[in-house]
């Protein structure tokens, strides 16, 4: 019976240890009371695509010789946004913007 008790104690300690580790995670979030449905995120829209394309164009104008990779990304992004592939277009435009800003 001593072996059984030891195994039980080890398993219990392991469980308690894991429980203690879990308890170190951040405080639980409160569910927000919603009225009028979920909140819409506005950075996935064609409008934001245009806004981002505008920012990219501004950054390009500020540089005499923008990086070719940034140019390509910007063109692809603009094209995808125009084609309705908003999220793909946004990713490319953001990368282009980051490259242009890093090139400052």
């Amino acid at each position: 019976m001593a072996v059984v008790r030891t195994v039980l104690a080890v398993a219990l300690l392991a469980g308690l240890g894991s429980a203690a580790a879990v308890s170190q995670s951040p405080p639980p979030a409160q569910p927000a009371v919603q009225s009028g449905g979920p909140l819409r995120v506005t950075s996935d829209t064609a409008e934001y695509c245009d806004d981002l394309a505008g920012q990219v164009a501004t950054e390009r104008e500020r540089r005499p010789a923008p990086q070719p990779e940034a140019e390509v990304l910007a063109q692809e992004g603009q094209h995808m946004c125009d084609s309705g592939l908003i999220r793909g277009g946004l990713v490319r435009l953001r990368r282009a913007l980051l490259l242009l800003r890093a090139d400052k």
């Binding site: 979030a29 409160q30 569910p31 819409r40």
Partner: peptide
């Protein structure tokens, strides 16, 4: 509530 954490349903595209 200040400095509080929330889980909120959202809609993306």
């Amino acid at each position: 509530q200040d400095a509080a954490w929330y889980e909120v349903p959202i809609e993306r595209a």
